[in-house]
Design a protein around this nucleic acid. Sequence first.
DNA 1: GTTCTGACA
DNA 2: TGTCAGTA
Length: 126
Amino acid sequence: MENQLQRSRAVLPIGTVMKLTELSARQIRYYEAQGLVKPARNAGNRRLYCLSDVDRLLEIKGYLDEGFNMTEIKRVYEKQAKRSHRQHKPVTDEDVRQVLHNEFLTIGGLRHKSSQFFPPDGPTTK
DNA sequence: GTTCTGACA
DNA sequence: TGTCAGTA
């Protein structure tokens, strides 16, 4: 339970996130511009990331490795945004993890088949 | 020293 | 995406 608080606690500077995710600051900021992550800002306008942000970045990296482009990846998160909106309850990082886990399983299965892939929507419960 | 925004030979 | 500039 306290872990939950820490996961959503933004305290990591971009430099740390770079090392943790193996991504360049350029990429991390670009993904933010694409609405994939919303790091907090400190008094000096510096970005502060929480662990769930790092998780998401890592997941995004995974999607990229699987050959997805920004628009595809954004679709996945847009869905989550809708879900959380419908639930009128902020999405917990547990939800995110669960949804992403399902997406990854889907990706893995389709990756071997061939060309086009259409991430079957509605992850988890409905 | 680190991060930020904007821009492009 | 990299990278350089000029700041904060």
